[in-house]
Design a protein around this nucleic acid. Structure first.
Lengths: 352, 352
DNA sequence: TTGTAGGCGTTATCAA
DNA sequence: TTGATAACGCCTACAA
């Protein structure tokens, strides 16, 4: 026990005593917040090292409300997509001299009856909130306390002005489906829906429906299944469709994770992709070009979304102005899984 | 502003006033720590809800040293392996009524000059430390303060008794290489080393060398490259080997992440796996059986490791006895990427 | 069963 | 440039 009071922790007071200065001075040295003679500073630093003093974060927060951390809340599923997202955020966080703390929820996280989110204003200076990983009430509560937050892939509840960064989903999905119809000649196109209440999922479905409608293909509820942006779920859905011997030309899996799982499940079931069934995804994850067949998908600038969101958060924390809504474009990426290179060239009469 | 003091936060004192009781009573209700009349309890709970009171975690920690969180520190690379690990930990954490906070380091994390790890005794009740994501000095410091910690895939520094959970790497790697030699007929077997100072990587290499030695295959330094348990690194290494036109029968990639990346890189370079080069991994990640060709590897019970480590940590936190070292067996899993089904049956003379 | 009051370790304000 | 001291919000003896 290297301190002098009865307790076990080395406090700022121990350091002060050891260095023959006041706690205020120690604090100033630690935080480089004020002018301190180099001599005293050195003495203090030495005392810190000798005693093995470590700042008590909670105490600082209590007096200060500064933690040097930002937090990110996301669902506890691990996909390449979320990995890219985290990578982007982490990169930006480090560059800003902050630390990134992550809390992965199984359901929607919320503040309840006085019990706070595990990541909150007491241990972070701001929060990045992914899609619907935190419920509206909690977001509202935090916002009302003016806690810095940036929303990813969702808009603010209750029409509040909380910065959010979003994807152009509908347009991307539309282009994708149109490609399937026009360039690949598919008509019976199935859709695997994303998680319920997921905004991206909703708009991708809208894009899908719109494209069908614009090309006079009737919407068939039997062709809508569940992918949930999740490999296991997607596989189950494929098994079900295969079991039903449903006639399907192509599958829009909702995202790349589901698409890759779908391809595997299809291949396991003895189907060829894209010869028997085409499969397309959304996101353009790193793996998308490596699998067999390479995946036709819609490019979403995930890393850019992440970095942008993080940057917005740091602006917010520093009290600088922010944009309340940032929308990222998406773009069709044609590879082999859609089967368009198998398709007959557009029939001549189409050009008449 | 819904409280009565000048500040912006609703405190326990506000709740107390609102409910017409003392702060102590409110605290007792919040923590279910003592007998409180149901009537008062109800009144307090109502006040909490009406005022939108949320516990100030930092304040509680300061007075209490209890957070309800555990932390996990790991490297900021996202692999299926780490994903499985996190999944196991998270599962166990939730079951125990705790929350899991994650800090992903880019290098080794450490306490320096009074600045604590972002995850520490002030915001967690215990820490799970992956391999060498935290430096020895810091671990020692925490341990000396008797902070609950469990080490994954590494042993305790300085011969301290910190619980750790480990893998039987050498034996697994040995079995794998022996299979390559004896059953697949490979002789020029390359090895992609894992991250420096990684214990798993070290022992896998020992298993590799031992197996070669026991089968009279001279160790060739030219056949040792870098995989780093990392896809990009593995791809680079493959490119280099392919460029050198090195003669290689088989590659032990160090882990499955590197093995899958290696297979992709090989295929991109026009090599057939396993016909031209066999590739094997280590871990038996979920994807291992899905890729093409299915991966021969060594099964490591990653989820079990994770759950065990988490359980140990909770024992530690509750002051219950723990085992200081838990070692998990590994087991060879033969699939197609090793090419043993292509190999001639063992030559008759081998059986003489 | 409930209330009072002291302490947890840090920072910030004010004075010196 | 430095020091004394009052917060910060909560918990827990101890007392009632």
């Amino acid at each position: 026990m290297s301190n002098s009071n009865g307790r076990s922790r080395v406090t700022i007071e121990d350091v002060a005593r050891h260095a023959g200065v006041s706690t205020a001075t120690v604090s100033r040295v630690l935080n480089k917040t004020n002018n301190v003679t180099p001599t005293t500073a050195k003495r203090v630093q030495q005392a810190v090292d000798e005693l093995g003093y470590v700042l008590h974060t909670a105490a600082r927060v209590l007096s200060n409300n500064k933690t040097g951390n930002i937090g990110m809340i996301l669902p506890a599923t691990s996909t390449p997509f979320l990995a890219s997202l985290l990578e982007g955020v982490n990169e930006c966080t480090i560059a800003s001299g902050y630390n990134l703390l992550i809390y992965a929820t199984t359901n929607q996280a919320s503040i309840q009856g006085g019990v706070p989110l595990p990541l909150n204003e007491d241990n972070t200076d701001g929060l990045l909130i992914f899609a619907n990983s935190v419920d509206d009430r909690t977001i509202l509560h935090l916002h009302q306390r003016q806690f810095p937050m940036v929303l990813l892939y969702r808009t603010a509840p209750g029409n509040r002005t909380i910065p959010c960064v979003l994807l152009e989903n509908k347009q991307g999905a539309y282009a994708l489906i149109e490609h399937l119809i026009v360039n690949c000649g598919h008509r019976r196109i199935a859709f695997m829906a994303g998680p319920a209440e997921n905004l991206d999922a909703y708009w991708r479905e809208q894009g899908y429906r719109q494209a069908l409608a614009d090309h006079n293909i009737p919407f068939d509820p039997a062709l809508v299944g569940e992918g949930a942006f999740h490999d296991w779920t997607a596989k189950q859905q494929i098994k079900q469709w295969v079991g039903q011997e449903l006639e399907i030309d192509a599958i829009f899996a909702g995202d790349d994770t589901a698409a890759m799982a779908a391809i595997m499940a299809l291949q396991e079931a003895g189907k060829r992709v894209p010869e028997d069934v085409a499969v397309v995804g959304f996101n353009n994850d790193t793996m998308a070009s490596y699998i067999n067949p390479p995946l036709t998908t819609v490019h979403a600038p995930t890393g850019e979304v992440a970095r942008t969101a993080a940057r917005q958060l740091f602006h917010l924390i520093r009290g600088e102005p922010t944009e309340s809504k940032i929308l990222f474009e998406t773009e069709l990426v044609v590879r082999r899984s859609c089967g368009c290179d198998l398709a007959a060239k557009p029939a001549p009469e189409a050009n008449l």
